[in-house]
Design a protein around this nucleic acid. Structure first.
Length: 285
DNA sequence: ATGTTTGTTCCGAT
DNA sequence: CATCGGAACAAACA
C-alpha cells in the first residue's frame, strides 16, 4: 500500500511522540516471523530506548540506543497504529509494542493483512547496506535531470517499470508513478532508452510535485481504506489524483486507457501522453 | 469463481 | 554473467 507520502506521514506521526521513549514490552502474535529471528528481535528491543525515528525510502526506521535499528516495511497492507492501552484489538495485529514516555504508556501496533510487510532488526552495518540499495529520493533535489536520464538510459525496460525500481529512484509506487507520467505527459510504455534529458527533467519535476502534494495531503486512501496514518485516519490525496483510477482525462476529456504494464495497473491518456520514439536508424543503402 | 489490489524479491529465460 | 519479466508471497473484496 504505502508509497513514500504514506510512509512519511506515519513516520512523522511516530517521530513526534516516541523519540526518547522506552520500549517496555514487545509481543509478537502467533507464529508471525520477524528478522533475523524472534529471540534476537525481542532481546534487543525490549527495555530499550528509542533515539530517533526516521524514514529511509519506504522504510520506517527506529534508531535504538543500543546501536540497533528496528525497521518496518509496510509493503501493501502494513500499518503502524498508536493506541491506548487495552483499546480494542486491531485486526491483523502482528506485533504490539508498549512504549513509555514521561511515565505514560501507550501501544504501537504493527498490523499487516497480507503479510508482505516486514519487521527487521539491523545492525549499523546492515542498515548502511540496506540504504545502498536505494537510488536518490524522487521528491528531493538530490538528483539532476542529466544524471536521472543517464540512469534511465542504462536500462532496457519501460519508463513506468523504471519508476517503480527503487534502485533507480526511490519513493514512487504504482499510483504516484502513474500520476507523475501523466503530469509529465510521457507515455508509460516509452522505452527508458528514449528518455532524453529534457523529458527526464519534466518527469523529475512532476514526481517531486506529486510526492510533495501527497505528503501535504497525508497520503492516499483508496476505497478499501487499507492505508491509514498512525492515528487510524485516512489521507486525502485520493481527491487529487490526476489520472490514477479515472475514466476520463482531466486534460482532454478523452477516455483514459488502462493497461497492465509489468503486472501493474497503469492508467494513461493516449492522446495527452506522448510515446517517445528512438531515433530511427537510417536505412543502409 | 475469478480478477483485483498502494510492494518487493526471487527464479527462470534471454 | 547480467538483466528483465513474471510468479510468488497472502488476504479480502467485488
Amino acid at each position: 500500500m504505502p508509497e513514500l507520502p504514506e510512509v512519511q506521514t506515519i513516520t512523522s506521526d511516530l517521530k513526534k511522540y516516541f523519540e526518547n521513549s522506552t520500549i517496555d514490552d514487545v509481543k509478537i502474535s502467533g507464529e508471525y516471523n520477524v528478522y533475523p529471528d524472534r529471540k534476537f528481535f525481542l532481546a534487543h528491543t525490549k527495555n530499550v530506548q528509542i533515539s530517533s525515528i526516521n524514514r529511509i525510502a519506504k522504510n520506517i526506521v527506529f534508531e535504538l540506543e543500543n546501536g540497533y535499528f528496528m525497521v518496518f516495511h509496510l509493503a501493501m497492507t502494513g500499518r503502524l497504529l498508536i493506541r491506548a492501552l487495552n483499546q480494542k484489538p486491531d485486526k491483523w495485529t502482528k506485533i504490539t509494542f508498549t512504549l513509555k514516555k514521561n511515565n505514560k504508556s501507550v501501544e504501537v501496533r504493527f498490523c499487516d493483512m497480507r503479510m508482505f510487510g516486514k519487521a527487521v532488526l539491523y545492525s549499523k552495518e546492515e542498515l548502511e547496506k540496506m540504504k545502498q540499495k536505494y537510488g536518490p529520493e524522487a521528491h528531493k533535489g538530490s538528483i539532476d535531470a542529466k544524471e536521472f536520464a543517464h540512469r534511465l538510459n542504462s536500462k532496457r525496460t519501460t519508463i513506468k517499470n523504471a519508476l517503480l525500481d527503487q534502485s533507480i529512484i526511490s519513493g514512487l509506487g504504482n499510483i504516484y508513478a502513474t500520476d507523475s507520467l501523466f503530469l509529465a505527459r510521457i507515455h508509460p510504455e516509452t522505452k527508458t532508452q528514449n528518455i532524453d534529458t529534457k523529458s527526464a527533467a519534466k518527469l523529475l519535476e512532476a514526481a517531486k510535485l506529486i510526492l510533495n502534494e501527497g505528503i501535504e495531503h497525508r497520503g492516499s486512501t483508496l476505497e478499501d481504506a487499507m492505508y491509514v496514518d498512525a492515528f487510524g485516519k485516512p489521507g486525502t490525496h485520493q481527491n487529487y489524483f490526476r489520472i490514477y483510477g479515472k475514466k476520463t482525462c482531466i486534460n482532454c476529456s478523452g477516455k483514459v486507457s488502462v493497461k497492465k504494464i509489468n503486472g501493474r495497473g497503469t492508467y494513461f491518456c493516449s492522446f495527452c501522453q506522448i510515446l517517445l520514439e528512438g531515433t530511427k536508424k537510417p536505412p543502409v543503402l
